[in-house]
Every structure is written in C-alpha cells, then in structure tokens.
C-alpha cells in the first residue's frame, strides 16, 4: 500500500520532468502560420460583415415604426441568446437541409460568427445612439435636417466615438471566437496546432504555442482599448 503510493509519487515526479520539445513547433512554424492566415481571414470577413450589419440592425432597433423595430429586436434576441457554437453547427448541418444551399465550413463559420457579432454590436450601436442627448436631434431638426441627415451628420459621429472601446472589445471577442470554426473543420490556427500535436505527440508545446500566439496578437490591442477608454473619458469630461 505504502510502496504503491510511493511508486505513484515517483512516477508523477518523473513525468513532471517533461522534455520540452519546442523544436518541432519551430519546424512546423509555416504550418502554424497557414493556420494564422485562416484565423485572420475569417476574423476580417466576420468583423466587417458583423459590425456593418450590426449598425443597420442597431438603427432599426431604434426606429419608431414597429414593423422595422420588431424584426430587428427578434434578430438581436435570437442571436444574442443562443451560443455561437450552436449557431455555427446549425448553419453547417441544419441550414443546408432547410434551404438546399451547399454550406462549406468557411460559410457556416462566417454565418454563425458574423450574425452573432451583428446582434451584439447592434446593442452597442443602439446604446451609443441612445446616449446622445435629445437636444442634438432637436438642433438637427431646427436647422432643417431630415432624420437620416441628422443621424449621419450629427448623431453617428458622436455616438461612434463613444462606443469605440466597446466595439474594439467586440473585435477582440470575434478574434477569439474564430477558433470555433475549427469545430466544423475550417483550417485555422487551432486546427493546425491540433494537427501538429497529433503528428509529433507534443500537445503541450503545440497548444502552449497557440495560446502564446493569441496572447501576443491580442494583448497590445487590449492595452490600446484601455488607452482609448481613458482618452475618451478625458475628452468627454
């Protein structure tokens, strides 16, 4: 009994002295970079689609006409209140049956992530627009501007400045979310790391490398949002 415990402890100690094998990671660096290219590509596509459609939906949520407001609200609530992985998988396996459209991994991931981003950013835009004092609207009206002129020239420029940190944070979330595309076999950083780990039996190094890679890419951007928040708070005061 006692020796059993000792043997286990010894084995544990032995395995703790793990032989780090970062050489294979460096050897496979080009493979990892192919993955990173996939990550950046899907990030760019989803962030552009998500943030631009989010603006439209966000403005629609603020509309006075309920036939515009209600569908926009439904869209936002549906995609905000379901997990993004469920959305990606639904678009990959269920959507083609419903519509007859061929969906490849890229399209499924883009649909899932960008609709999710659309819903979340719509709420950010709406909050930004609603944060503008009603006096601004009245001023726009007083000098003869229409609704869309006031929105475009007076409200949005101020609102966008205020919500810039929130939008940047959303962008960071989207970059992290792109790893979920690997679940439907889209080639990105994590799926390449898994490949390297499986071929070289070095999951520790492979997954550590990916974690560090994401940290190195995102950490400066996170710091940037802090600076952004501080400067905006100062200029607002």
């Amino acid at each position: 009994m006692n020796t059993d415990w000792l043997a286990a402890a010894k084995a544990r100690c032995a395995s703790m002295q793990h032989n780090w094998d970062f050489a294979t990671i460096i050897q496979n660096w080009p493979v990892l970079m192919v993955g990173l290219k996939g990550t950046v590509w899907i990030f760019l596509v989803t962030v552009v689609i998500g943030l631009s459609t989010g603006l439209i939906v966000g403005i629609c949520r603020y509309a006075k006409n309920r036939w515009i407001r209600w569908p926009a609200t439904a869209l936002v609530e549906i995609f905000r209140n379901t997990p993004v992985l469920v959305q990606i998988i639904w678009f990959y396996y269920a959507f083609p049956i419903l519509t007859g459209i061929d969906v490849n991994p890229f399209l499924a991931a883009v649909l899932g992530i960008s609709l999710n981003t659309m819903a979340f950013s719509a709420e950010i835009y709406r909050a930004g627009i609603q944060s503008i004092e009603p006096g601004q609207w009245e001023a726009g009206k007083a000098i003869g501007m229409t609704y869309s002129q006031t929105m475009r020239r007076i409200i949005l420029p101020v609102a966008l400045r205020r919500i810039l940190p929130a939008l940047t944070n959303r962008g960071i979330e989207v970059f992290k979310m792109s790893t979920l595309a690997s679940v439907v076999a889209y080639v990105e950083t994590l799926s390449k790391a898994k490949l390297i780990a499986d071929l070289n039996y070095n999951p520790i190094e492979a997954y550590t490398a990916v974690a560090i890679l994401f940290f190195v890419v995102l950490y400066p951007i996170v710091q940037l949002t802090y600076v952004l928040e501080r400067t905006l708070r100062k200029s607002d005061a």
């Binding site: 544990r12 395995s15 960071i172 790893t179 994590l190 520790i204 997954y207």
Partner: peptide, 20 residues
C-alpha cells in the same frame, strides 16, 4: 486574451502529460 477553446484543449490534452 486567449480563446477558451485553446484553454480547454490545453487542460484536456496537455496538462495530463505535464502532471501525471
């Protein structure tokens, strides 16, 4: 700043090798 899926893979596939 690291994706939760990467963290999960790390804890599931890598950690058991590092500590027994």
């Amino acid at each position: 700043t690291t994706p939760p899926l990467v963290q999960l893979f790390w804890f599931f596939f890598a950690l058991p090798i590092l500590i027994d």
